[in-house]
Design a protein around this nucleic acid. Structure first.
Lengths: 190, 190
DNA sequence: ACCTGAACACCGTTCAAGT
DNA sequence: ACCTGAACACCGTTCAAGT
């Protein structure tokens, strides 16, 4: 007589993500995840291959949600406003999910880009192209995006230790970068 | 009769750092470190409080070396050349010590800034001030530094997946950022 | 079909006993 | 003083046995 399913992959991923954010990556044990979904640890292996696979599934979920948030933010049609909105959405997501986001940008794992994350990369590149020109789009994206990622990493890590207004620094940096990657307006040339 | 010391804190830290870089953070076990220095695992606890403490000591060592490399690089007296040299030294160090550097910029640990790292922060801020002006120095530093960190993070993590020349992107970004944070030259004003 | 207790190999860490 | 084997609690994971 078949035993009925007590849990699901979705429930395991959701519980894992919650535990990850609450207690950190090291504290995410298979036994705790199993407890959270109401089974014993060995049962998890019917749904996920191993702990690494669970991390992969969690990071896919996080990646997808981040991409969706950025996609929803960029809706004005104006390149500068859209890039600002995407940067703000990225930063807000990182603040709301610091542990998961930290894993997302860590060197080791490649959570296998989701469709949504591939799409948002394409959208971002197109938006940058509208500002910097087709030819310099990739170079300009690699000027803007690392700054956003680095800034958020540093503020979440508490690396900004010399005082000052972090919000002001965010605006200052974003303003200067958007100007720096803008193609000079042909109408203003002599 | 007292047993003679078979190892030292320095040897333990050096072995730990080597293992860390060779096999990654998760593979850095107390038993392997003990093996590498020729004692049994329990003996390590005479020199380091616990594994977390060992990581702290390793990261202090790494921090100090990075600060020294950046300090040695900035010797021209010209702000732009010095900032370029510091950025290059930082990037080269990260490429040479990717795992340790990854831990250095990770959210969790604060390896307790060494004297050298505090000094290099001050030097950096002064150099930026010479370029951006006293008033905007902190804002300008928080525009330049996160980009450098973010760029290196992304290239080491393999996040630049859309092709293109990464070296060109590094030069493009650095050039544009240095211009962006430069105070307009008063001599060029009408 | 899925769930479970028992077990295994591994890890960080402690400690009494050695020299 | 420092080193060690033995031991403990914990972890990821496997598997035979249950329903």
């Amino acid at each position: 007589m078949p035993a009925h399913a007590q849990t699901s992959t979705d429930a395991i991923v959701a519980a894992g993500r919650r535990l990850l954010e609450e207690r950190g990556a090291d504290a995410l044990t298979m036994r705790d995840v199993a407890d959270a979904v109401g089974v014993r640890a060995p049962s998890l292996y019917k749904r996920v291959r191993d702990r690494t696979d669970l991390f992969r599934l969690i990071l896919e979920d996080v990646t997808d949600e981040l991409a969706e948030a950025m996609d929803a933010a960029a809706d004005s049609g104006d390149p500068v406003a859209d890039l600002r909105a995407m940067a703000e959405a990225y930063r807000a997501f990182a603040h709301a999910n610091p542990v998961a986001w930290g894993l997302l940008i860590a060197p080791q794992p490649q959570p296998g880009a989701t469709e949504r994350s591939v799409r948002i990369s394409a959208t971002l590149l197109l938006t940058v192209a509208a500002l910097a020109g087709e030819r310099d789009a990739l170079l300009a994206a690699r000027t803007l995006v690392p700054w956003v990622q680095g800034f958020v990493t540093m503020e979440l890590a508490g690396t900004f230790r010399l005082g000052g207004d972090v919000e002001q620094a965010w605006r200052f940096g974003l303003d200067h970068l958007l100007i720096a990657i803008s193609r000079p307006d042909p109408a203003r040339r002599p």
